[in-house]
Simulated scan of single mutants.
Amino acid sequence: MEEEVTSPDTDRPTNSAARPSPNEVRAFTEAWQSRPGFEAPAEEVGVELPAPVYTSWEDYLARTTERERLQWCRVKAKTASRERLMSGRPERRVTPLEVWQVAEGAQGRCVYCGSLALERRPTGHDGRPMPWAMVGRRIGSLDHRVGILDGGTNDLENLAWACLWCNVWETERRPGATDHGGLQRSDQQSRLALFFLITTLAGLEAAPAEGVS
């Protein structure tokens, strides 16, 4: 049996099999994400966007069976409960029922951008994964409001429904976004436009005129 070697300063194992501390993982992640070229890929120009698989939460319920929905939730629960390279296995496992509660509570819409996110990642005829960036805001995923590395847990109150695009790229979390296949409610876009217009006008009225003290 290999003897565990510890550091005299931290009393942590120093052999290669030891896991890094959360602070070390966070520092590595920040350094990795700040490197040149690490940013969300731009939306492809001139590429025809595929038609949405589902147009609303009601459409999704009507065109899927309870068994299909439960199977999808099982996959996401398994993903959320798996062991991670940097943080190990979560103390609490997510259940398929909890995944469904989160998705149903959000009516299938991303908590960050509001897009309808109920599709699966696209695959080819042979089952192999295909590029998904063009429909990233349509793909449903389970997210942690507070990340596991930041002390978050798999408790139900820390789980949120998110499109895969917002889940992967935190800088892309824009309410009402329609890029990358985003599907917003028809009335939501008009409300957002009106909100930004009112905010802009209010800001102009509050700003003092140039040269007036």
Rank of each mutant, 00 (worst) to 15 (best):
F195P: 04
L201G: 12
S81A: 10
S87P: 02
E83C: 11
A106R: 05
G176L: 02
I198P: 01
A31F: 00
R12K: 11
P131L: 12
W57Q: 10
T171V: 10
I148P: 01
L164Y: 07
V99R: 01
F196K: 13
S7G: 04
E44T: 11
L204W: 14
A42F: 03
A193R: 13
K76T: 00
W32H: 07
T153M: 05
V53W: 04
Q184N: 11
N23D: 13
Y112M: 10
R82M: 09
T123L: 09
S21A: 12
P208H: 10
S190A: 15
A162F: 02
E3C: 13
R138P: 01
E3N: 14
D143R: 03
R173T: 03
Q71N: 09
R74P: 01
G88K: 03
R128M: 13
R63M: 06
R67E: 14
E66D: 14
E30F: 01
T10S: 11
S16T: 05
G147V: 00
S56C: 10
A103I: 03
W57M: 11
L197R: 13
V94G: 01
P36F: 07
V99D: 02
C113R: 06
L164A: 14
E39I: 04
E66H: 08
T14I: 11
L70F: 15
T29K: 08
E91Y: 02
D9F: 06
T64F: 00
R120C: 09
P8I: 04
E24D: 09
E119G: 08
A31G: 05
W165T: 12
P129I: 13
E30L: 04
A177L: 09
E39L: 10
C110I: 06
V25I: 10
A106Y: 00
P129N: 15
V75E: 08
S141C: 09
N23H: 07
W169C: 10
A209R: 13
A80F: 00
T123G: 07
S186F: 04
L156K: 02
S186N: 03
V53D: 04
N154A: 09
T153N: 02
G46Y: 05
D59Q: 04
F28D: 07
C73E: 03
T199I: 12
P129W: 10
A209I: 07
R137P: 06
V45Y: 05
A103R: 04
L149N: 11
L61Y: 00
V45A: 12
T95P: 00
T200Y: 11
R191T: 04
E3Q: 14
Q101E: 12
D187W: 02
R145L: 15
Q33S: 05
E48D: 12
I148C: 08
T178N: 09
S87F: 07
F38A: 08
A103C: 09
V111N: 06
D150M: 11
S115D: 10
T55Y: 00
N15V: 06
E172R: 15
D11P: 01
T123I: 13
M130E: 15
A27K: 10
A31Y: 00
S81G: 11
T79G: 07
Q71M: 05
L61K: 06
W132C: 15
R137H: 09
Q107G: 08
A80Q: 05
V75A: 14
R128P: 00
W161S: 13
W165H: 15
N15T: 14
T79L: 12
Q33K: 09
E4L: 15
L192T: 06
E68F: 02
S115F: 01
Q33R: 12
W169A: 13
A103H: 01
N167H: 12
N158T: 02
A117M: 07
D187V: 04
W57G: 11
